[in-house]
Amino acid sequence: MRFTNSYIKSRDPVEATNFLRRDNRLAALLPAVERMASLQQDCAAVLPAMFSHCEVLAFEQGVLLLSAPNTALAAKLKQQTPKLQEALLKRGWQINNIKLRVQMMKAADIKPEPVSLSLSPAAVEAFDTLSQTLEQNKQNAPLIAALKNMVQKRRERPDY
């Protein structure tokens, strides 16, 4: 579970805990969830730059299992494990070993739909004038053809 990402920050944590408390079986998970969330926050406090992309996967029998989205970040995190372990011990976590796993935590961010750029009528006229005034030679031929094609499409469909 990821506790520090923006898509979870947008949700109200009170709603999640209320949901877990409604059902007896789910309510039994609440202490474990709160413990993992607390451990994630402590790790993020110790290594804030790295834990914006990493997360705590498990903590059992003194072994902390962390995930990293790629091998480069995992290598950097591996170098910081002694510092992390020492800081977590000072915060009361009994951690004997830290293991890392490279795995993608979430789907790739959805990129916004590309915005088509519109040209003003004056710009379309300027390109049309340019296509007519360019010297007619072998080097300029593809440019002139492209300009004329663009002007024609913009005049047919101004939203193009």
Results as ranks from 00 to 15, higher is better:
residue 24 N to A: 13
residue 59 F to W: 08
residue 68 A to S: 05
residue 72 A to P: 04
residue 47 L to D: 02
residue 89 L to Q: 15
residue 45 A to S: 14
residue 97 N to C: 11
residue 114 P to C: 04
residue 80 Q to W: 04
residue 68 A to Q: 00
residue 60 E to N: 08
residue 49 A to Q: 09
residue 89 L to C: 09
residue 93 W to R: 09
residue 61 Q to I: 10
residue 56 V to Y: 06
residue 63 V to W: 04
residue 40 Q to T: 01
residue 52 S to Y: 07
residue 80 Q to L: 06
residue 86 E to W: 09
residue 55 E to C: 14
residue 116 S to T: 14
residue 109 D to H: 13
residue 108 A to H: 10
residue 72 A to K: 00
residue 45 A to V: 10
residue 118 S to F: 11
residue 50 M to K: 12
residue 86 E to V: 07
residue 68 A to F: 01
residue 112 P to A: 07
residue 50 M to H: 13
residue 51 F to D: 04
residue 41 Q to N: 09
residue 109 D to Q: 11
residue 50 M to R: 12
residue 59 F to D: 00
residue 81 T to G: 07
residue 28 A to C: 08
residue 90 K to H: 12
residue 108 A to F: 04
residue 71 T to P: 00
residue 112 P to Y: 02
residue 104 M to A: 14
residue 89 L to K: 14
residue 48 P to S: 00
residue 78 K to F: 07
residue 51 F to H: 05
residue 50 M to Q: 15
residue 101 R to H: 07
residue 42 D to P: 12
residue 85 Q to N: 03
residue 75 A to I: 00
residue 76 K to Q: 12
residue 62 G to M: 06
residue 55 E to G: 15
residue 73 L to V: 08
residue 69 P to R: 01
residue 94 Q to I: 10
residue 36 M to C: 09
residue 33 V to T: 02
residue 66 L to R: 02
residue 73 L to H: 04
residue 96 N to H: 08
residue 90 K to E: 14
residue 115 V to Y: 10
residue 57 L to V: 14
residue 99 K to T: 01
residue 74 A to I: 02
residue 37 A to L: 04
residue 96 N to R: 13
residue 44 A to R: 09
residue 47 L to G: 01
residue 85 Q to F: 04
residue 58 A to R: 13
residue 40 Q to R: 02
residue 38 S to D: 12
residue 76 K to C: 07
residue 66 L to M: 09
residue 55 E to M: 13
residue 41 Q to I: 01
residue 77 L to C: 02
residue 42 D to A: 08
residue 118 S to W: 10
residue 63 V to N: 10
residue 47 L to H: 02
residue 112 P to V: 05
residue 75 A to Q: 04
residue 39 L to M: 03
